[in-house]
Design a protein around this nucleic acid. Structure first.
Lengths: 231, 231
DNA sequence: CACTATAACCAAAACAATATTGGTTGCGAC
DNA sequence: GTCGCAACCAATATTGTTTTGGTTATAGTG
């Protein structure tokens, strides 16, 4: 245990660590919190790149910094990665999609009852009619999608609208089992028609709680049929 | 009105339209549904680029195709654009963020009560304790953020987790007015401590409705203080 | 042998320069 | 005026190069 001349290995590392901490405290970093590349740091601090990396590893495990190949080394916590639709759709199933819809859409209906303009609701009523008159399942589903999207528009909350659109993107990417015959069409007594009417009615009467409840029941109906409890 | 020699303009357009429809029906397009650039199409069909564009405009208004500068022309409906956090945060305000949280998080709490593992809930309880012991507002907010994130983890729904993370990214980007003094800390009777406890309690007793309600009340408290009705 | 400094290499990401592509405008011919 | 033609514009893709964190091989040092 001789540390007179040069620091022994296990102490040298902590020495680099101290140097690094000092650097972080003193150096003025750019706005994005990026610090110099490892090679440069090694040069500035007068130590090996390997030593710098050891020190940075400690700081990273402490949560002080985060690193990424090609990007660099940054101060603070690692930012959350953006949604990757294809990845997300492969880690999800239709039931989880329904649960997400049940979380979002009743609240969207509630907000639409408060924030929606008369023009918003008129458009929505038109879409509900178009749903009834669709001549194929494919056409119906397109209008049904627009129906729910229009409610999100009427809520006038750009964040929730963006979240619903993300959810819809995942929904399209998730493989759904049921492939309906292209020639058939939704029956005249399809439950969604009445569901949609109840939602439109509650919105036009500006009843937030009723609208949210109608939407929740509607989606619950869809989920029940998905799981096989009905339909 | 002489149409013996060459088709009059308004018929020539429909001629191109027919050609285009035929092309779409016959030509084998790549997987992404992309069709040749306008210049090439004009060459292949032996018409002007302007005529091709008129035809494509009709097809686009019919919803058959969608186009974008630099990208090209594609079959089908225009895909929804992904969320642009910085853009979204500039078009939103803190109240809308709260409304979005109120839409998502109570339902996440409900799912966490059903799907969360014992380990999930133990971690959550630890974080709740850390919230109480935080010595600065900044530290408290970091733990509070982890608290809500952990509930989303416990819900075991990757879609909703991704949506909450997107929402949190927007939340960070939105400029919040209140800048608390860095030396102060949350008071011991801060309402969130009791709120968190009620949520943890409901989850550990596996009571979905109670958990959702506790979360909703918690967020409502936060919103009330934001709007200035309280605290 | 144990440890380390040095260099080279790798894949991911950034960066820069160029080419495509839908959208638009101006000009001449008829 | 209308149409054909070409040039131009801005957004995007594409391609090639550089940077950067992560890894490995090799030789040096005690």
């Amino acid at each position: 245990m001789d540390d007179r001349v040069s620091s022994p290995p296990h102490l040298a590392i902590s020495g680099v660590l101290a140097q690094l901490r000092g650097y972080l405290a003193s150096a003025s970093l750019p706005d994005d919190g990026r610090l110099p590349p490892e090679r440069e740091l090694a040069d500035v601090l007068g130590v090996t790149r390997a030593e710098v990396r050891k020190g940075l590893s400690v700081l990273e495990s402490e949560g002080q910094i985060w690193r990424h190949v090609g990007k660099g080394t940054f101060l603070g916590a690692r930012p959350p990665q953006l949604v990757d639709i294809s990845d997300l759709s492969q880690r999800s199933n239709p039931l989880q999609v329904m649960k997400a819809r049940i979380a979002l859409e009743p609240e969207l209906a509630r907000l639409a009852a408060v924030n929606g303009t008369a023009a918003d609701l008129a458009t929505l009523a038109d879409i509900a009619v178009a749903c009834r008159e669709a001549e194929t399942w494919r056409e119906y589903e397109a209008f049904d999608s627009r129906f729910h999207h229009q409610i999100a528009e009427a809520a006038h909350n750009p964040i929730l609208l963006a979240l619903l659109e993300t959810l819809n993107a995942v929904r399209r990417a998730v493989t759904w089992g049921r492939a309906r015959p292209s020639h058939s069409r939704p029956p005249a007594d399809h439950h969604s028609f009445a569901d949609h009417d109840r939602i439109v009615d509650a919105l036009s009467h500006r009843e937030p709680a009723t609208a949210a409840d109608a939407m929740r029941r509607h989606l619950q109906n869809v989920e029940d049929r998905l799981v096989g409890r009905l339909g």
